[in-house]
């Protein structure tokens, strides 16, 4: 079970990042769980300074941008 977390306070880009992650994970046929982290305390706890950010199994993969679907597949695979 992969744990995908989207860090962001709910801006438009955060929604987009969540959508791309979801689509990529489905395309890869992963067993996954997606969580949106919106609490600032927790976002800061990841050491992220630029939202939105993508965290996979506890590791920050991307901060501050929305990767393309292809890039996202590589990040999740």
């Amino acid at each position: 079970m992969k744990k995908i977390q989207i860090l962001g306070t709910g801006c438009a880009k955060c929604q987009k990042l969540a959508a791309v992650a979801d689509e990529a994970a489905k395309a890869l046929g992963l067993a996954y769980e997606l969580e949106k982290v919106t609490a600032l305390e927790r976002i800061a706890g990841f050491g992220v300074m630029f939202t939105p950010a993508l965290v996979v199994d506890g590791t920050v993969k991307v901060a501050g941008k929305v990767p393309s679907l292809e890039e996202m597949k590589k990040l999740l695979a």
């Binding site: 801006c11 600032l40 992220v48 300074m49 630029f50 939202t51 501050g64």
Partner: peptide
């Protein structure tokens, strides 16, 4: 440096801590 006011808070925390 790239900046967006929506990231002001995480950035602030990342700096001062």
């Amino acid at each position: 440096t790239p900046f967006c006011s929506c990231s002001a808070v995480p950035l602030f925390i990342g700096f001062v801590t």
